[in-house]
């Protein structure tokens, strides 16, 4: 796994620029992911890689294309100090794991090996041995993730037909 590290306020316009929103299929979105902040990201990212970022990750537009593009690249999860609220919702709703943990962001350096456990919220920096605890999701949100996203969970409850 590789780490991709970014600072604060990574906005949805740099995650997936609006000029590519006219082709919302996953492959196309993935091929332009992070293009305006890191033009090497899409060509080097591999399944299992992790993005580590500062505060307010995913701010700006409501475009679900942003978490879709990151997920479609095979990124395992995003660990950030905080997430913009629409990105946070969108990630949960499409079943893409995100972890809010400022201490982990500060305790991970370039090249470190990192493991994550979504069930417990535990993040381990295997290079330094440091352990971090991300804020756990409420049960309601875990229900959405367990069903593989919002629509499936609503169908399982019988409220969406």
């Amino acid at each position: 796994m590789k780490l991709y590290q970014y600072g604060d306020n990574v906005d949805t316009d740099v995650i997936i620029p609006a000029r590519y929103l006219n082709a919302p299929d996953e492959k196309s979105l993935a091929s332009h992911c992070m293009e305006d902040i890191d033009d090497k990201f899409a060509s080097t990212v591999e399944p299992g890689d992790i993005i580590v970022a500062g505060s307010n990750f995913g701010c700006g537009s409501s475009r679900e294309h942003a978490p879709i593009s990151i997920k479609a690249c095979g990124v395992k999860c995003v660990i950030a100090k905080s997430f913009a609220r629409i990105f946070y919702r969108n990630a949960i709703n499409i079943g893409f794991p995100i972890m809010e943990c400022p201490e982990a962001v500060d305790g991970i350096s370039a090249g470190d090996k990192v493991s994550v456990d979504f069930a417990t919220g535990v993040i381990v920096n295997k290079t330094t041995g440091a352990r971090f605890q991300a804020a756990p999701f409420p049960a309601f949100v875990n229900g959405i993730i367990e069903h593989g996203g919002l629509l499936n969970s609503l169908k399982a409850r019988g409220v969406a037909k």
């Binding site: 409501s62 629409i86 969108n90």
Partner: peptide, 12 residues
């Protein structure tokens, strides 16, 4: 919100 919320909102 995002598109999945929109879809859920339209349905329910």
């Amino acid at each position: 919100v995002g598109s999945t919320d929109m879809a859920a909102g339209m349905a329910t």
